[in-house]
Amino acid sequence: MSNKTRVAIVTGASRGIGKAAALRLARDGMSVVVNYAGNATEAGKTVAAIQEAGGRAFAVQADVADETAVAALFDATVREFGGVDAVVNSAGIMRLGLLAEFSLSDFDQIHRTNVRGTFVVAQQAARHVRSGGAIINLSTSVERQALPTYAAYAASKGAVEAMSLILARELRGRDITVNAVAPGPVETEFFLSGKDPATVERIAKLNPMERLGQPNDIAEVISFLAGPARWINGQVLYVNGGMN
């Protein structure tokens, strides 16, 4: 499938997996809208990298849980690029802690971004994505691992998976695929924060490849789902080097 005239919105695209996905989709030939929550400098670097490689991109600030801001994000995309063909829900936050001791304030923040944010973006995607398009939500492999301290985060991603599978069926007849990508541990600032080297090494060895994933490992799968993978729909794809 040619992506030359196709358009993608990538949320949380200023850093990490979101940035890698934006760069990869641009390399595939798509025009890319780089969404960010607050780091305009990093979002600008993503846009600059795409433009320097000959691609088309611009950045839009929007809190993914704010329905008015997200509607404006989609409206800006349509005005600038004429439509929307792929939406990658990459924005997310993670807080860790034992369930019995977990801050309910942190719990609410996680669910505001990861659950409400995915719902709000998916709602606009369902209204705007053109025939032949794709909606790709980011989940996590840790949900299957049932690791202590991940209860709040894994619960939010369980909700993301449920939404993805149901939306795929609700879009019956429109030739739009909806899937969730569930990465294992990926070497990003998001993952490394708060972990000592021994913990990182232990986690890296949980999969038979004995390494952490790289953002490009995940972007490769997102690219596949956003482009040629028209017969994969309503699925959760675990991208974790065989950790499960």
Rank of each mutant, 00 (worst) to 15 (best):
V60I: 13
Q109R: 14
R112I: 00
L99W: 09
H111A: 00
F102V: 09
V121L: 09
G82D: 11
E161Y: 00
A154G: 10
N114A: 07
I136A: 11
E67H: 12
D106S: 11
A125G: 10
A126N: 07
L165Y: 05
A59S: 15
E161V: 15
E143F: 05
R95Y: 14
A182V: 01
S139N: 05
I166N: 13
F119I: 02
S131T: 14
G92V: 06
G82R: 12
V70Y: 07
V78I: 15
V64L: 10
A69L: 07
L98Y: 10
A100V: 06
Y150N: 13
D106L: 12
G158W: 06
A126S: 14
A69D: 03
L98C: 01
V181W: 02
F81I: 06
G117R: 00
V120A: 08
V87T: 11
S105I: 07
L171D: 10
F74E: 05
Q124A: 14
A57E: 08
R130D: 02
A86R: 00
V64G: 08
S164R: 04
L96A: 12
A162K: 04
G97W: 04
F81E: 05
E170H: 06
V70I: 13
T177W: 03
Q123G: 08
E161I: 15
L171G: 11
A151D: 13
L171H: 07
I135G: 12
I135N: 09
T140L: 09
V60C: 12
A126R: 11
V70N: 08
E161W: 00
M163S: 02
G92P: 08
F81A: 06
A134L: 09
V121Q: 06
D63Y: 01
E80Y: 01
D63T: 07
V178Q: 03
Q145N: 10
